[in-house]
Structure formats: structure tokens, C-alpha cells
Design a protein around this nucleic acid. Structure first.
Lengths: 91, 91
DNA sequence: AATCTATTTAAATAAAATTTTAAATAGGTG
DNA sequence: CACCTATTTAAAATTTTATTTAAATAGATT
């Protein structure tokens, strides 16, 4: 829950790819697991990290758990990066 | 040497702080080690990772090794982040 | 040349992150 | 209610990453 967690969570390629998948819309844990070659338990671990870092949100429906993107945390990240001179990011 | 390495390298707080230090200008390995409570060998390890990820450059002068920032790699990072909707980053 | 200073490299160790396996939970369905 | 499906949790095993310790390198100083 902070910049440090955001960077840490984004350092894993699988977790970044999960976020990319979720751009299209919400998915259940099972649907995400199908897209990647990973066991449900391992996926659950990554989803928990993403959720703790506020990069995704979850809600239950029937006996599924849906996950969806939460992009608001990226703002903090951009601010950190921009301290190194964000002049070239206009376009 | 790619987006994956950039994220991985930035996931460590010490390494991020080293980059922040280097905003002010170049520093020798020793000067950096003084700013943080870390042994020269451990620092050297982190500097190597930062260098491999193209986040810093080094050059030798006398028997010192100077390190300086290379911010160009951040562009790639911004592009990745902006796929999630960079509308709010105008200001 | 001998030695000192700054730094790196290598090997061993320690710590942290990830995966696996097995068991638990919780909500639908027959 | 007994059972199936989706998912999580917990503990152990594995893998990856970081630190320590000791030795090596390279250039400066005497």
C-alpha cells in the first residue's frame, strides 16, 4: 500500500500480464488461470498481491470471484517517474 | 535489458533511492555507499543491476568510478503505464 | 617497487518471493 | 442434505534475490 508495493507488485511479468488482460474487462479467477499456465493456488497468491497493492478490485457473484482493474494507483507511479524529467512525455 | 528488467530493478527501494541521489549529479561508488548504510560489496551489486538495466552509466576517473543517471529508459515505462489510460497525466 | 585507497568479483550464507501440494471454505445444484 | 465447482489458505519445498566475507584488481602515492 504505497509506492514501494506498487513497484514490487509490478516487477513480476505474470502480474503485469494479468493487469493487461483485465484492460478488456472483468474476469473470474478461473478465466485468468486459463489464460496463463498456472495453478489456481499460485494465481490466487498473485491476485492477492495485486489486490493488496490496490491494482485490482474483487467482488463475488454466484460462486465466482470477479476481478477488475483499478488504475488509480498508476498516478503515484507516474509522479515518481516524472521527478527524473517528464518533458518528453507530452506526446 | 527491457521493460521486465526495468520494473525488476526499480522494485528495490535502495536502488530507487540511489537513482534519486543521482538526480543532483554524478557520484562515486564510495559517495553513494556513504549516503546509505551498506557495504561496498552490496552496493556494487546494486549498481551492477542498475547499470545492466541502463538506468545508470559509469566512467572511471583516477581510481574512482563515477555513476550518473540515464533517464532514457523511463520512456518505455511510461508507455507501458499509459496503456491503462494516461488521460489524467496531462498536468 | 611497496603500499594505500576505491571498487569489484566470487563464493557462501541468509532472506525473500514463488510454486506446489493438500486441505479448507463457501456458495450452487441435484 | 450430499455433492460439485470455484477459489482460497496453510505449510512445505523450491527458486530467486540480497548480503556478507574474503580475496582480487587497478590506479595513485610514497
Amino acid at each position: 500500500m504505497g509506492l514501494a508495493d506498487t513497484f514490487k507488485v509490478l516487477s513480476d511479468p505474470l502480474r503485469r500480464n494479468i493487469l493487461v488482460c483485465l484492460k478488456e474487462g472483468k474476469l473470474t479467477a478461473g478465466e485468468i488461470a486459463d489464460k496463463f499456465n498456472i495453478t489456481p493456488a499460485a494465481l490466487s497468491y498473485h491476485l492477492k498481491l495485486l489486490k493488496n497493492a490496490d491494482l485490482i478490485m474483487e467482488y463475488k457473484l454466484k460462486n465466482y470471484i470477479y476481478y477488475e482493474l483499478n488504475t488509480s494507483v498508476f498516478d503515484e507511479l507516474i509522479i515518481w517517474i516524472n521527478q527524473f524529467g517528464g518533458e518528453n512525455n507530452e506526446k
